[in-house]
Amino acid sequence: MTFIAASFVVTFLIAPWALLPWGIILAVIVGLALHLFETPLARALTLGLLQALYALVGAEAGRLSLGLGLLAGMFFFAMFGGRGMIGIRDFPQDEVTRVQTLPKRYGAKRTAQFTAVNLLISYALSLAAYFTGEFSIIYLYLDLAFIAIGLVCAWLFATRPSPKLAYVLTMVFMMGEGFLICLAMILGSL
């Protein structure tokens, strides 16, 4: 509660309007803690929704634009699909628990396809953001690198999904791809 209260105060002081998506994030977090979203798709949806809402919280500190809206959608689909990758990564451990995951419900192959399709949508949205004219050419260069790496990863994952590969790819996405697109956003808007 200390951290949540600190976040509330800072958000209220810097961007009061951001408290709207902030409140939705808190509601989702409380819902997750109360186990209200236990189905595999609901868990994936909440993960995607949270990432998009965090982007909107930040955007409310300035001017929310079409480009940022598309990027919030990009984060949504990236993490919505990413849940499938996480599910396959954790599959050996999840097998012995009662937790419901996408690979347990739909199988590894269909889950990998689900992830790949969502990643493709997220890449299309990231590219569409450039064509709103809100970003400089630097964004395009970095976004193309982001898409190229992502497409290779998506293709690898869709063709041979395994917990080991999913472990490596989640690192690539969390540490590499996430920071790359954020860097593209920052440098592209200078």
Binding site: S7, Y54, G58, C182, L183
Partner: peptide, 22 residues
């Protein structure tokens, strides 16, 4: 993600850093 979105939205460096913290 929060900080990058704030900066992209034109919030400036200081406000973006505060939103990053939030």
């Amino acid at each position: 993600i929060t900080g990058a979105a704030a900066f992209t939205a034109g919030a400036g460096v200081a406000r973006s850093l505060w939103m990053t913290l939030a």
